[in-house]
Nucleic acid binder design. Structure first.
Lengths: 212, 212, 212, 212
DNA sequence: CATGAATGAGCGTTCATTCAT
DNA sequence: TATGAATGAACGCTCATTCAT
C-alpha cells in the first residue's frame, strides 16, 4: 500500500487524451507480452517500447519509471483477474456449489490466459527479493486472500462448519493454488494435473461439513 | 567457436588445485547469498565478485559465464538438498513413519537455510521464461520428483494401497510443497503455515491405507 | 526485439537537429581517420569517440552499433567518391576522351584522399570474411561496376566496337583498378605505378576501335 | 625482414618433440581455417585454440604471441605457395611457354586452396594499417615480386624484348593478379573471370616480342 | 616441457533516466 | 504535450598475456 501511494503520479493516472489513453493501454499489453515471453529481468523499457512499436521515451512518459510501469501492470492484471473471478463466484449461491464448483472456476479463469499467468508469476517471484516490487505484488495476493476468505465466510454463513483451522485452510488453498499454477507453468495442462485439481477439490469439499 | 563446449566446460569442472577448489566454492556461496538477497536480475557477475571479495574476472574464469555460474549454483543447491533428504528419508523404514514423518523432515531440511530456498526459487521462477535456465532448473525438480516417486514406491512396496491416482498424488505433493514454500517465502514461518503443514501431512497419511 | 529494425534504423537516419547533424558528420570523419590510421580491427567505438572528442556513448547514440557505423561510413565514402566521379566523367563527351582521360580522372579522384582509400579498402577486405559487412561493401563495388558499365555503354553508343568480350572487359577494368589501388597502398605513388597506369590506359584505348 | 629477426624466438622454431611438431602444425592449419572463415580481427588466440581443440595457453606456448603466430602463418602460406609455383614454372623451358602457360599455372595453383587465398588476403589487407604485420606481409609480396621478376629475366635472357617499361610490367602483373584475386574472392570463379584471365594472358604475350 | 591459474584492460552494448525544447 | 538529444553507469564477456609450478 505505502509504496503505491508514495509512487509519483504518472501520466497514465491523470487525464489523457483519447490517443494517450490508447497508447497507455497498448504499452500495458506490450508489457504483459514481454513479461510472459521474456520474464522480468529481460523486460526492459526498451523491450516494451519495441514490442509496442513506440519510442522508449514514450513508455517512460506514460509510466514514469520501470518500477511504475510494473506496478501498474500488476494492478491491471490483478484487477482484471479478480473482477472476473468475483463475478463468476458471486453467481454461485448454493454453498455446496461454491465448494464443488468454486475451485474449478477459479482454475478455468486463471488458465485461460497463459501469458497473463506467467507475467503475474514473474513479478510475484521477483518480488520475493525485490523490495520495490513487494508492495505491488502484495496487492494481488491480498486480493486473492480476500477472495478466499470471503468464500470461507460465505460457507460459514450458510451454516457449514470447518474440520480444520480456518487459518490453515486459507493457507492450504493459497498454497495449493500457487503450487498447481507452478506445475501448470512448468508442465502445461497434463492429465495428471487435471486429476490433481479434481482431487484437491474433493479434499476441499471434505474439509467442511454441511449444517446438521 | 564451439559454443556448446564453452558453455558447459568451465574451469570448475576440471581438476582444480586446492586453492582453486576453495575459490570456486567461495564464489558459489557468494552467489547464493546474492541471489537470496537481491534476486536473479540483480545478481550480476560484478555483484558476486564483490560479495566474494574477488575480481569480476575471477568469477568468469571459474564459471565461464553468468549462465554457467547459475547452472552450477542450481545443481549445487539441488544436490546439497536432496543428498541430505535422501539420507534422512532413507533412514525411515516403517511405512507409517515415512508417511507420518517424511513431509516434516522434508520441510525441516528445506527451511533450515532460507537464503538457499530463496535462491532456488529465484532461479526456478526465472527458468519459466528463460530457456537457458530451463534444463538447469529441471534438474532439481526432476530430482524432487524422483524422490517423491521413490517414497510412493516404497509405500506401495510395503503393501499400502493408494486412494487416489498415483500421478495425481505426485502432482499434489509437488504442488503442495512448492506452494507452501512460496507462502513461507512471502510470509515467513507463521503459526498458520505450521498448522497447514500438519494438516497437509494428515491428508497425506489418509491418502493411502495400510495392508489389510 | 526486432533486430532488423534496430540494425538499420539509426538516429543518423531520421531527422536531426543541426547540432546533431554536425555531430553525426564529425563522427563519420573521425571514423575514416581511425580506419585509415589503425585499420578495421583497431577501430573501436572508443577509438572513434576519442578521435572525435566525444563520449563513446554518443557514437552509439547516433549509429546504433559498430556495424551500423561502418555501414554508414562505407556508403558515405562510396557516395562521395562516385558522385564526384560521375560528375567528372559525365563531362567527357568525346568517346576518344572517355577512353583516353577516363581512367586518369578516376585515378586522380581516388588517390586525392589517401585515408579515404585506405578506409574503403580496410572495410572491403574485412567484408570478404565478415558477413555483416558484405552487403555494405557490395553497395560500393556495385556502384563502381555500374559506373564502368555505363562508360562502356557510352562508348558502344558512339559506335565503337569491343575487341574482347564485354564481361571480360568489365572484370579487367575492375580488377586492374583494385590491383593498382593495392599497389598504391603498399608502395605509394611510385614512378613505376604511374607508368603502369599509363600503360593500362593505352591497353584500354586499344581494346575498342572507333566506328569505321 | 627486420621485424622477423627481431621477433622473439618461439617454441616452434627450436627443436620440438614429434608430438610438439605435430601440434605446431595443427595450430598453423587451424589458424588458416579461422582466418579463411572469420577474417583477421575475429581470429583470436582463443578461436584458434578452439578450432585446434587445444587450450589457449598451448597456442601461446608454441608461437609466443598472436603476432608471432600470424608471422609464421604468413611465411608458411607463402612458402607453400611459392615453392610449388617455382617448381611448376621452373619446369617451363620454352619462353613462349612461360608467357603462354605461366599465368594460367599461377592461377591454378593459387585458386586450388580458397581458404589459403582468403587467409593471405586477410593478412595482406590488415598489413596496410597494422605495422606489426607489415614486414610479415611484405615477405610474401616480395617473393611474388621476385618470382615475376625472375620470369621476366628468363624471358629477356632468351632474347625476347619488352614493349613497355620493365617496372611498369612488373607492377601490372602484380596489380592484375591481385585485382583478379579480389574479384575471385568476391564473386567466385565466374565465366567472365575466366575469360578475363585469358585476355590478360593474351595481353601478357603481346607485351614482349620474340627475338628476331 | 608443458600447463593450470590468474589478470588488467578493454570490448560492444544496454540500462534507466534527465535535459531541453 | 510530447519527444528528440544526451548521458553515466554498468552489463556480460573476450582480449592477449604473465605468473607459478
Amino acid at each position: 500500500m505505502s509504496a503505491a501511494t508514495k509512487a509519483t503520479i504518472t501520466r497514465a493516472d491523470s487525464a489523457l487524451t483519447p490517443k494517450g489513453e490508447r497508447r497507455a493501454a497498448e504499452i500495458l499489453d506490450a508489457t504483459v507480452r514481454c513479461l510472459a515471453r521474456d520474464g522480468y529481468s529481460a523486460t526492459s523499457i526498451q523491450a516494451v517500447a519495441d514490442e509496442a512499436g513506440l519510442h522508449k521515451r514514450v513508455v517512460l512518459y506514460y509510466y514514469g519509471s520501470r518500477e511504475g510501469l510494473f506496478d501498474r501492470v500488476v494492478r491491471h492484471l490483478g484487477d482484471e483477474l479478480f473482477d472476473e473471478l468475483e463475478r463468476e463466484l458471486g453467481a454461485l449461491d448454493d454453498p455446496e456449489e461454491i465448494v464443488g464448483r468454486g475451485y474449478e472456476r477459479l482454475w478455468k479463469v486463471v488458465t485461460r490466459d497463459r501469458p497473463l499467468v506467467i507475467s503475474w508469476f514473474a513479478l510475484r517471484a521477483e518480488s520475493v527479493t525485490n523490495p520495490t516490487l513487494a508492495s505491488t505484488a502484495r496487492y494481488v495476493t491480498d486480493r486473492f486472500r480476500a477472495l478466499v476468505s470471503g468464500l470461507i465466510d460465505q460457507a460459514l454463513g450458510r451454516g457449514r462448519t470447518l474440520r480444520i483451522a480456518r487459518g490453515s485452510l486459507e493457507v492450504l488453498i493459497l498454497a495449493g493454488f500457487q503450487g498447481l499454477i507452478l506445475e501448470y507453468l512448468e508442465r502445461g495442462d497434463t492429465p495428471q494435473l487435471r486429476t490433481a485439481i479434481d482431487d484437491f477439490q474433493i479434499w476441499l469439499a471434505s474439509v467442511s461439513e454441511p449444517p446438521s
